[in-house]
Amino acid sequence: MTEDEFVLLVRKHQDQVYWHAFYLLKNSEDAKDMTQETFIKAWQHRTKLRQKTVRAWLLKCVQNLCFNLLKRQKFQVEISDEDDETFEMLLHKNTHKSIPTPDEISIKKEIKQLVHRAIGELPPEMRSIVIMRELDEMSYKEIAKVTKQSVNTLKSTIFRARKKLREILNRLMEETDEPEI
């Protein structure tokens, strides 16, 4: 693979890799670093890359890098307020973009934020699968390649993740005394 071909590859896949890192780490700076590291690793291992499996390779790579970082962070400080702010800012921006009527804003915005907080509380492995399925719109088969699971196991993991989200959402609503949906 030549340098030009590789730069095209970066252009094509950088968004997906970055989104994945961002949702896993909930921090734009770390997500940027992990994305860069993923592509640098890809360049170093360019002879092993295949066009058909490159997306799966990149996502697996960024997933591993993020999991390692999360493990390291576990032994350091809790995720700072600043990190959460970055994540919340993104959600806030998106909330205003998609809700039209003023009456619905307060309830829907809060529900939306609670759902996103719930996503943030999912275990990283589940979150990664949910992101691939929902944000990257990958097929079960493609995700199975990344996670090295069977399609049936993967489906069951996705439904377990959604149930877990519902449980977290219930808890968060009880904690904040949210109005009924």
Binding site: V10, Y18, Q36, I40, V115, I119, V130, R166
Partner: peptide, 26 residues
Amino acid sequence: AINTELSDLPKPQTPSEILTEVTAYV
């Protein structure tokens, strides 16, 4: 609600530095 939110997850803006720095490395 979860299903709706999951199908409409916000996509963060990818920083332009990623491409610049990876290109420089390459």
